[in-house]
């Protein structure tokens, strides 16, 4: 590991950017795999555009970090050890090409990403604020699109509602860990993480606001500060699998240009 990489990983503000970038990278990684296999052609195209947004957003944030710490964005994206990634568990829970899982995952995440980007857009660092502001405008498209689908499927046929409910039940157990704080030496509730409880409340309000218009239900608690997971580099096996697959070509010939 280079000094530059260590500098980045020891910078608490950089970790806030990195957790969003890593979430976006792995969410985009999971969703882009669907391209060509979606349930309706038009839907396939639309979701692929949004997967590209997520990957692009990751790139925009890695570029910011790369400029700041003198690192190649692809090196940040691909070449860290698994425990140096800060993405949440939710991003890499396998969906087995079940559209309900994919949809609910993205919906849970976008309601988290939007307010976090709002807060990053207020940072004093102008370059970061400007990038977050642009990303936020596009995140808004995801919120609108995914809310629309949740309302449609959550109040259509019994079959569709049951499938979405099942996905909510599976994924909501991971949703609380979206709010985990990276960097163990931050111990106050509202410091670097832009106010964890406040963020959680905003997320719960917005997601429940959509569910109230459907027959769907969701229960999520904010986990205690002592619980560690992805944002602390403690990952589930499915993360390791996704990470290995993502780097399979690149790691087979280290140092090569692609």
């Amino acid at each position: 590991m280079t000094n530059a990489m260590n500098n980045m990983l020891n910078d608490l503000e950089a970790l806030l950017v990195l957790k969003m970038a890593d979430d976006k990278l792995f969410l985009g990684h999971m969703q882009s795999d669907w391209t060509g296999l979606g349930p309706i052609l038009e839907e396939d195209i639309a979701s692929s555009s949004m997967a590209q947004d997520d990957l692009s957003h990751a790139l925009v944030l890695y570029e910011y970090l790369g400029n700041r710490f003198d690192l190649d964005p692809d090196v940040i994206a691909y070449e860290r050890k698994p425990n140096q990634y800060l993405c949440c568990d939710l991003a890499t829970v396998p969906d087995d090409f079940n559209w309900a899982t994919s949809l609910v995952r993205r919906w849970l995440f976008t309601h988290y990403a939007a307010p976090v980007l709002d807060r990053l857009a207020l940072f004093e660092d102008k370059e970061l604020a400007e990038r977050a502001h642009r990303l936020r405008a596009e995140e808004g498209l995801h919120v609108e699109y995914l809310d629309d689908w949740m309302r449609r499927l959550g109040s259509s046929s019994d079959e569709a509602r049951d499938r979405i409910q099942e996905a909510i039940d599976l994924l909501s157990t991971h949703a609380g860990m979206l709010f985990e704080i990276p960097g163990r030496d931050i111990d106050t509730d509202d410091s670097f993480c832009c106010g964890r409880s406040e963020l959680f409340e905003e997320w719960a309000r917005n997601t429940n606001g959509v569910l109230e218009q459907t027959e769907l239900k969701m229960q999520v608690q904010l986990p205690g500060m002592e619980i560690v997971g992805g944002r602390s580099g403690v990952h589930a096996d499915h993360f390791a699998a996704a990470h290995a697959e993502m780097g399979a070509v690149r790691s087979a010939d280290p140092g090569a240009a692609w």
């Binding site: 038009e42 555009s49 699109y145």
Partner: peptide, 20 residues
């Protein structure tokens, strides 16, 4: 052209396909 259940979703689809 495209197929969609209604014009709201059609608008979203249009943006994500022809708009890109």
């Amino acid at each position: 052209w495209l197929n969609a259940p209604d014009i709201d979703m059609a608008t979203q689809y249009a943006c994500e396909h022809y708009g890109q």
